[in-house]
Design a protein around this nucleic acid. Structure first.
Lengths: 341, 341
DNA sequence: CTGTTAGCGCCTTCAA
DNA sequence: TTGAAGGCGCTAACAG
């Protein structure tokens, strides 16, 4: 009776050894078969697969990853799951990863870069093959870890900065500028801006700056703004709109930090009997489904979240080695002319 | 020169051994310190932490998990990320897991039980401490794997069946029944139903059945129904509503398979100049934010997705051992009286 | 309080 | 086409 008492209370796990014995082959043969790798006689394969089924063997990937020094894991870091755009990015990631050996491991930061640091440290300890992370705003420690890890790192959503390794996204500054140009072109002159918490959302601020630039180039300014300290939501959009509607002289257009906010604006107008776009025009950002289905479709800018996720994966796996220079992929955007502006 | 060429192309990884040598201590001391476990002299800790910082050491959890036979991983299986209710469940899971040693690993099935089987197999190979999975509809193989795994398994969302181990959710059948009772009580008599693909969404069907029961108990039936083959969305809700609006005699209320669909119904009515709830009443399911912010708040049933996620985690970690009998936790629901029914 | 010693379950190498 | 052997990096047990 040796130190055999170390087994966990779990039902004694089935291991390769057991399968190998049952099938009367060596362990490495079982291993090869489970991974469809290396030459195996059809005869042997059958015998082994039978043993696998009989025992209910499930390979232990923890042991496998350790032995092969390859986890086939992809770390994904996003700020939130409640903002629908991030689940959409995840869908792109899932789609691109589906069928490959790799599996995403998702972590959420709640827009907190200290939390992000903890989360990245946690992910790196799983030895992922790549990290896909939203945005450019990280703590110094996070940046260091990411750089030192020497795995591929994709910073998603945004391309208005120099990435650690790869950036995949769109220029929010240019989107803001395009918004301004479009609206000026449509004849709007008295601009309002309804926004949400910028500290957490650098990209919203970039769009705002782009907008201001476009207006300046047209000899205009933003006449009134209402910026909430809360994260964006339909409710907050309603509130900010109500506030801006008291402004004199009356605004003729309000630009929103995103579609959720803009939908709130539309709901406010519906309730207050303000007709769109004659009495007031409304412009959002993102191109969410909900905006398209409104009685009057929301005018907005379409970003391509799914494509960002998919492209991030593709670029991350293009090569295991980081090139000497960082690269930037622009997934673009387009102005969508709805009925509200 | 031996077989030292086996190092991966990665920058030579820092391991415990290296840290231990630099700090002039044994490996297990470093290990203890990294895990804040066991007694350690403050003096030693400092010296080791310095070496950790100097080397940029990140412990390898793959190796750690293998050695300790504990992955601290929780597998989460959900059908989709585009339906906002699942991200909400995830938030509850994240919240409950935050601060614990455990980390969720999320997989998405796209409402496909064969895909679910593959996904569950993949998750189990990571030796998770528990599996949290949405719904009761699994392949036989999935059920077998889950049962044999001998870890805690929580089936979420639904409680209208006998779970493998634990169920956390609400009775969709009773919610459907409550909907019927409520609407009959409000005086509605000519019922329409607008639904989405049932094959993928068993819970929607349960609600429908509950509704039919309630109507039968009141001597009523559903006069007209429009059921799409597509997944639920605002757009599909609009379409189905348009279809039902041609029905003669006119319906006085439409029950929707969920809030997304119902919001589509509201948008249709807005566009068609149908006043709510006089000409037509509308009732949803879920209690999403968007419904509350509409000019006229949507009448609906509030389910508690966040609570489901949180409770699932709590129950899963109550004990590592499965009790002989499965257990069921009801997170409840409530009728929300908005302005549309 | 700390170091030594065996593995954890699998994969890779290498020889057969 | 197959098997044996030696780690992968860390932790648990135990002795000091």
């Amino acid at each position: 009776m040796q130190s055999r008492l170390r087994l966990p209370d779990r039902k004694s796990k089935v291991t390769v050894k057991e399968v190998a014995q049952r099938a009367g082959v060596g362990e490495s043969t079982v291993s090869r078969i489970m991974r469809n790798k290396g030459p195996v006689a059809e005869e042997t394969r059958k015998r082994v697969m039978e043993a696998v089924r009989a025992t209910g063997y499930v390979p232990n990937r923890i042991a496998g990853s350790l032995a092969s020094l390859d986890s086939h894991l992809v770390g994904v870091v996003i700020p939130s799951l409640s903002n629908i755009v991030f689940p959409e990015v995840l869908q792109g990631i899932h789609a691109a990863l589906w069928g490959s050996e790799n599996q995403p491991v998702i972590s959420v930061t709640e827009y907190d870069i200290d939390r992000e640091e903890a989360v990245v440290r946690g992910l790196l300890s799983w030895q992922p093959s790549a990290i896909l992370i939203a945005g450019f705003e990280h703590t110094e420690a996070t940046r260091r870890m990411l750089i030192q890890s020497d795995i591929r790192v994709v910073e998603m959503m945004d391309i208005d900065a120099v990435p650690i390794d790869i950036a995949v996204g769109m220029s929010h500054r240019r989107a803001g500028y395009a918004t301004g140009r479009y609206l000026v072109g449509r004849g709007y002159r008295r601009f309002g801006y309804a926004g949400h918490d910028w500290n957490a959302d650098r990209r919203a601020r970039l769009r705002y700056e782009g907008l201001v630039d476009a207006l300046r180039d047209a000899g205009l300014t933003i006449a009134a703004e209402a910026i909430a300290e809360a994260p964006s939501s339909v409710g907050v959009g309603k509130e900010m709109t109500a506030r801006l509607c008291t402004h004199e002289p009356k605004l003729d257009v309000i630009v929103y930090s995103n579609d959720d906010m803009a939908v709130g604006g539309i709901f406010h107008c519906m309730g207050a009997g303000i007709t769109l776009p004659d009495q007031l025009a409304i412009f959002g950002f993102n191109g969410l489904d909900i905006g398209r289905e409104l009685p009057q479709p929301l005018s907005t800018i379409r970003s391509n979240r799914f494509l960002i996720g998919r492209t991030a994966v593709e670029k991350a796996f293009e090569s295991a080695q980081r090139p000497p220079e960082p690269s930037v992929i622009d997934t673009g955007f387009e102005v969508f002319t709805g009925a509200t502006a």
